[in-house]
């Protein structure tokens, strides 16, 4: 399935871009699976998504946990814990 992925703050700086369209393999259906899939891209990605750093996720602008299901056409975002206010 096809999804859009956005990155923010230190994660955006690490991967060097803010948005991309990804064609996911059929077996990548949850946030955890997507993190594992992205980790295969290399050291930078593995460092971000191997679980050592806290990375929050949102699907279609709602905070979700790692078990959340991704659907075709979703906008998935990855970002560090928020620090506004």
């Amino acid at each position: 399935m096809h999804i859009k992925v956005l990155y923010f703050a230190r994660i955006k700086e690490a991967v060097n871009y803010s948005t991309e369209d990804i064609q996911l393999p059929d077996d990548v259906q949850t946030i955890t699976a997507l993190k594992n899939y992205l980790s295969l891209r290399g050291d930078t990605w593995a460092d971000l998504f191997n679980g050592k750093q806290t990375v929050r996720a949102a699907i279609n602008h709602e905070l979700v946990d790692n078990l959340a299901i991704i659907h075709a056409g979703d906008e998935v975002a990855f970002f560090p814990p928020v620090t506004g206010g």
């Binding site: 703050a9 970002f79 928020v82 206010g85």
Partner: peptide, 19 residues
């Protein structure tokens, strides 16, 4: 707001920038 609104601060300090 402090814990669930998606804002991120980056500071410029005398030692450089930091999230």
């Amino acid at each position: 707001l402090k814990t669930s609104a998606p804002f991120w601060k980056k500071e410029a300090t005398s030692q450089g920038e930091r999230w």
